[in-house]
């Protein structure tokens, strides 16, 4: 009965191993990934290092302002006598954490909106996509500033928790996700519409699949490729948004250091201590650039033209 020879079938090879090989071929992306890994590792050393050097990064010491680099303060001290290096390391933790968390949150939000719109179609789709179109056009920074200025005690939060560092951190993550989910939504919608009309979804429906099953089993895995690519590129934009917002004073506020708010004071000090303006910005730039290169590499690795190589005709 069997009239297909097994030899004609190529060995199964996971798409992921192919992709990883391609990604490794993108040298700039590979170097960037290594750079980001090292940077993250260094930033995570902030606490142990501060213990070792005996430094409290948030403690001001007006007698030790603008110290040059020395054995205890490897990059010197800032205008309030705080250690620059340790603050940069903590700032890096914040930036990277905000970048990853906000991207994750907006992916969830965007996929929820996009898949709902795309899979249900009709009026739901029309309304949701009009909303998305408008959101895409809006100027993000002014919107973020208003959201950053919202007084959470007016929403029923106690003053203590609204002012806690964790809350301020989460609030940044949430507001960035709230204004910037639209790209994800568009991508998810386009994918959902494509997959919705595939015959395999129809076959599953005939076999008794409900909408939820089809979304989870068929739609999400099949739209994951463009989503992963877009998410990687989003991380960089989020880090920029967070640092801009913190620089303007509506993001993460001192004493918690971030690369953005470390530059806020630097603006007043450009004559007396211009070097303080260099490190945080350089780190933002290098990190965002590296993330974008990694994003480019992921896009290259996930290029669908490479996935068809195994197809036999």
């Amino acid at each position: 009965m069997t009239d297909v020879t097994v030899a004609a079938l190529p060995a199964p090879r996971s798409i992921w191993s192919l992709r990883f090989e391609k990604f490794r071929g993108h040298r700039l992306a590979m170097y960037s990934l290594v750079f980001l890994a090292v940077l993250t590792a260094i930033c995570l050393m902030a606490w142990p290092l501060s213990q070792y050097l005996g430094i409290d990064p948030n403690k001001t010491n007006l007698l030790a302002r603008f110290k040059a680099p020395n054995a205890q303060h490897w990059l010197g001290t800032d205008d309030l006598g705080r250690d620059v290096l340790i603050r940069l390391m903590y700032g890096g933790q914040v930036s990277i954490a905000v970048g990853l968390l906000a991207t994750f949150l907006m992916t969830v939000l965007g996929v929820a909106v996009g898949v709902t719109a795309g899979f249900l179609g009709g009026r739901t789709d029309a309304v949701l996509m009009r909303l998305t179109d408008c959101m895409i056009a809006l100027p993000l920074i002014p919107l973020l500033i208003v959201l950053g200025a919202v007084d959470l005690t007016k929403l029923g939060l106690s003053a203590a928790s609204a002012g806690s560092p964790l809350f301020i951190f989460l609030r940044i993550v949430i507001i960035i996700a709230l204004v910037d989910w639209t790209t994800m939504a568009r991508i998810a919608r386009a994918g959902a519409i494509q997959v919705r009309d595939r015959d395999y979804v129809r076959a599953a429906t005939v076999a008794g699949a409900k909408r939820r099953y089809n979304v989870l089993v068929h739609v999400l895995p099949n739209i994951s490729t463009p989503l992963i690519v877009a998410a990687t590129l989003t991380v960089g934009r989020v880090i920029l948004l967070e640092s801009t917002l913190s620089f303007l004073g509506f993001g993460i506020v001192p004493p918690t250091p971030t690369w953005g708010n470390m530059l806020t004071n630097a603006q007043q000090l450009i004559i007396s201590a211009p070097h303080l303006a260099v490190y945080p910005g350089l780190l933002i730039f290098a990190t965002v650039m590296a993330v974008n290169f990694v994003g480019d590499g992921v896009r290259y690795a996930f290029d669908p033209r490479a996935e068809n190589e195994g197809r036999s005709h």
Partner: peptide, 9 residues
Amino acid sequence: SLPNFWVSL
């Protein structure tokens, strides 16, 4: 990738 406020400074 450049933070525009930093470039300004």
